[in-house]
Design a binder for these strands. Structure first.
Lengths: 225, 225, 225, 225
DNA sequence: CATGAATGAGTTTTCATTCAT
DNA sequence: TATGAATGAAAACTCATTCAT
């Protein structure tokens, strides 16, 4: 569980990603923190499926079984719930991917593992409303402006994580030295998100797979030595 | 202007895209049709920026200067306005791209022109809320279900348009015969949408450009003979 | 058809009832009169089933196939339509009962025929919303005040019709001289309306029949010599 | 006051009527229950005078001094308010009649007391919109269908109450054994409702009295031994 | 700290009515 | 006279938020 995010920030590299939340350093959670976390976890799928504007406090009351008062006791307003939920989504995604990649050793394997993660988990992702970063990205841009900087931050983080992997691979001699790690990181993310979008709306995971295959091909033909 | 879309459907190939709206066959518009069209055009940017759930009838009243009654006199409900607006967005986008590509002769040029269109127009697209297909795609999937089939239809149409171009290029000997037109069409769309998403949320059109450049590279290295 | 009700009033005794509309003296109807009459006839069942407050102009538009403008061209407002419809209901009811009683010769037969009319026609009456006088009576009293005097007038008319029958029977020696025709008229109406109300709401026409049987019994035991 | 009607049902014979609400067993009311009851009591005369379709939420806001939100916090929708109000009307009517009859000992006296109740209270009943069962009966049948089963239920209840009285009288030797209690119960109700309807719309309580007198006469000549 | 109850401004939609054509 | 199109007020209902307890 993540908590105390406003008071204590600990950056621990887990696998490839720098996770901004404690892991082995969990402080015992106060009741308030537990409720806060409970609200976040129950609200997360709702926000991801209905969007920020489409989710009402009544939805959150239903999802949590708590009262509006309880929600407002733990969050200043709906924006703050949405923000916490968004951060939670990113945290969970990062952690899951980190776990998924942990046992892969070479950077090539780790990078390809990113695509594998979605090959394995596409169904669950589709069913829970798709990629939270994509959803937030599209809605935040004009309508839920308070989310924008968080989305930017998490995309930056993701980019840095992937670029770090590539750099590591360059150091280890797996990848060519003359490629831009950041540029390839962005390319991978674009394909991932583009594939996710098409696959989900068209009810056809093969479209996502096609994007993932292209990522593999890029690694194989453009990045590997 | 487009009108009579329900009664008279004329498929005219404009450039690469088959546009489903009259062109030289415009009937004189009734007052209702004019008002309907007026509402659609004034509402279009609002819906694209605020999303379906984020746009209220009061927003439409403000944008159009008409009364709620007038809007409900011309549309059955908010869904129907949103649907008409979405179709309008797709129509306009198709028409603009068709115009943009008109003078390009080879299929290679036309295909690359698609990327060029966004190189030229990214700013205006960003300012008006981004790609309407992307926006609708993300929101329609779970929250605005009534839009989903329209989004699917327009993505299919777009795919067919691009695939048709590639086939034509294959016939003309510009492109390799052993590639799948549809698969490459989807790849191009994914890169476009992925690049659009990243470029917009990060306030950095160079990220979009990077996707567009990769489209060019794919044409050059994988498609051309 | 009835028409010109505002300009020419002809009281003709048809059977027992004095009908306030022309019968053999129909003037040729103007187009406006025809439309007016058409609106009344099509609206009549709607008002009887949904009530005055529950019937909207949209309902009338749907029922008539005409436009709101057409309705407002022929009636000053919804009240006036409702009033005309109410009068029409009363007229039709009176006429039907008059027809039903025409061939009965003795006043006893005519009086019992009133009950018979409902024994025969209860189903159709139930299906079209029940007794229009009862409906209007209940609604007019507080909510549709403009109707009240018309309801009073028609109940008076109905009372006078029945009382007239009884008087005639007294003159002919069928009925006792010492009973009050008006009082018995009211009693018959009360039983009719009470039976109608119970029968309809309980979905049980036998309750209505029970009221009708009591009317017969009263005639037999209290009125007949 | 009545409350907890859904959780605890206590049937106590009060006079002739079995009342389905606690009497000496009142639990302390929660604030919500108090507000709910407050809304019901303030809304009751409005609904009885204006009818279901004719009563708007704004009317209820005005009558209660509460906000729409407060009303919707205590009732799911307008239907539910109307239903609760109808039940309240029936409850109050039953209780008042039960009180009125309490000290009468013989069943004959109780039965005649029913007519007496209206002889005494006709004015107040007229002023508050008439008989709520009649009003609901007429409107529920076609327009406010959700009320129909409640009206049927309360008419059944009323019938059973009166029939029970008659049976008791039969047992006690007051009434003839060969009459159908239920049939006479219905006859009494019909006369009551028919008289109420005529008396109210004609602004003439003597018409109601005439129905009440006939009830007395029926008891005297047909029921009593 | 959480609840229950309320607020008031907001939502979408429908109303009776009007009026230029 | 009838239509098509609009109005503006009102309809039912929901929203995010507050606060006494």
């Amino acid at each position: 569980m993540f908590h105390k995010i406003n008071t204590i920030k600990i950056n621990i590299p887990i696998g490839i990603f720098f996770i901004t939340f404690g892991k082995d350093f969990k402080l015992p959670m106060s009741k308030a923190e537990k409720t806060r976390q409970f609200i976040i976890e129950k609200s997360a799928p709702i926000f991801n499926m209905k969007g920020y504007a489409g989710t009402s406090l009544a939805d959150l009351v239903e999802a949590t079984g708590l009262t509006k008062g309880a929600i407002y006791g733990n969050f200043e307003n709906k924006d703050e719930v949405a923000t916490a939920v968004y951060k939670y989504h990113v945290y969970v995604l990062n952690k899951r991917i980190a776990n998924f990649l942990r046992e892969r050793e070479s950077m090539t394997e780790k990078l390809k593992g990113l695509a594998d993660y979605y090959r394995v988990n596409w169904k669950s992702v589709f069913e829970h409303g798709g990629c939270p970063i994509q959803n937030a990205s599209v809605e935040a841009d004009d309508n839920a402006a308070f989310l924008k900087r968080h989305v930017q931050h998490s995309i930056s983080g993701w980019t840095k994580g992937i670029a770090g992997l590539i750099e590591e691979g360059q150091k280890k001699g797996e990848f060519r030295k003359n490629i831009s790690p950041e540029e390839y990181a962005y390319t991978i993310i674009m394909l991932l998100e583009g594939g996710m979008m098409l696959g989900k709306i068209m009810n056809n995971h093969k479209l996502l797979y096609s994007a993932l295959d292209r990522i593999d091909a890029i690694i194989e033909t453009e990045m590997k030595k």
